[in-house]
Amino acid sequence: MVGIVGWGAYIPRYRIKLEEIAKIWGADAEAYRRGLQIYQKSVPGTDQDTATISVEAAKNAVTRAGIDPVDIGAVYVGSESHPYAVKPTGTVVAEALGATPDCHCADFEFACKAGSEGMFVALAEVKAGEMKYALAIGADTSQGAPGDALEYSASAGGAAFIMGADDLAAECLFTHSYMTDTPDFWRREHEYYPQHAGRFTGDPAYFKHIMGAGKAILEKSGMKPGDFAYAVFHQPNGKFPMKVGKMLGFEKEQLETGWLVPWLGNTYSGASPVGLTAILDVAKPGDLILMVSYGSGAGSDAFIWKTTERLKELQGLAPHTRDYLDKNQIYLDYGQYAKHRGKIIMNTG
C-alpha cells in the first residue's frame, strides 16, 4: 500500500487580470474570457522561481506529513521553467528542506506532465521498498509569449507530495499512463517562449490523451465516474477540464473543487497537482479521487486516490490551497508584470 503521506501547495501573491493583458495588445478581453474562462492569473514575485515555489510547497507537505526531512529518500521536481538550463532545481529544494546528502534527486522536464511524472516515479520508488519517503513536486513559473493566447493563462504555482507506505492520507489504488508523440506545443533550446499549434492542441492532443488515460484507468479499476467524489484534470484553461470531465461522465460538482484555473491560470507542471491539493484540503475520509495530467507531446498520467481517516488530521496543519488562491492578492498592471517576468531589456554590467 503506497500513497500520499503529506501534501502542500504554494501560489505567489501577485495577480494580473485578463483585461490588463488584453488592453496592451488591443485584444477583445470579453472574447478571451469567454474563450479561455480565465479571469486572472498568478504571477511570481521578482524574487520567486520554480525552486522557491517548490521549497515552500514542500515545506507545507513536510509539515503535514510530520516527518523528519532526513528520511526523504528522493526529491523530484517537475517543471518547464527550471531556473537554470544546466544545474538542478531539485538539489536546491533538497538542501532547503534538509534532505541532503543521502538522497536521490532528479529534475523532470516533460511538458506539463513533468509534475505527475515525478509523482509516478516517487510512488514506484516507495512501492519497490527502495526508500521510506519520496518527494514529488510539480511547479512552474510558466512562459507565454507576449500577445499570444498563452500570455493570458501562463501562471505560477506548485504542489508537493510526499509519498510513503505507512500513515497514508490518500492511498494510490491505480495508475495508468497513455502517451504518443503529438507535437501540439513546444519550445526549442534557447527560445524564450513556447509555440503551440492552435486548435490542434484540442481534440488530437489534450482530449485524446486525457480520454485515453481516463477511460483506461476506469476500465482497469472497474470503477465508474459516479464512484468518485472528485476528479481533477490538467487545466490549461477553464473550458478544457470541464469539457473533458463531462466527456468522461463526471458531473460539475465532482470537478469544481480542483478547478482552480479561472483564478489561478495555468501553472503548467503544477496544474493538476495543485488541483489535487485543493481537493485533499477538503475531502472526507474514504473519498475516491481521479487525477489525470496532460503534457503536450508527453501524454497523460492517471491516478486513482482513496483518502484515509488520517486525512482529516492533516488538513489543518498547513495553509489550504484555496487560501493561497483567494486571500490578499496583489494586483499588477502590465508594466509591473513585465518587470516581474523579466520582459524588460535592462542594462547589464
Binding site: 514575485g45 521578482t46 524574487d47 520567486q48 522561481d49 525552486a51 522557491t52 521549497v55 515552500e56 515545506k59 532547503a96 547589464t348 554590467g349
Partner: peptide, 10 residues
Amino acid sequence: EFRKVNQVGG
C-alpha cells in the same frame, strides 16, 4: 520564506 535574494545578472 525561501526566496531568491540576489542574482548576478542573467
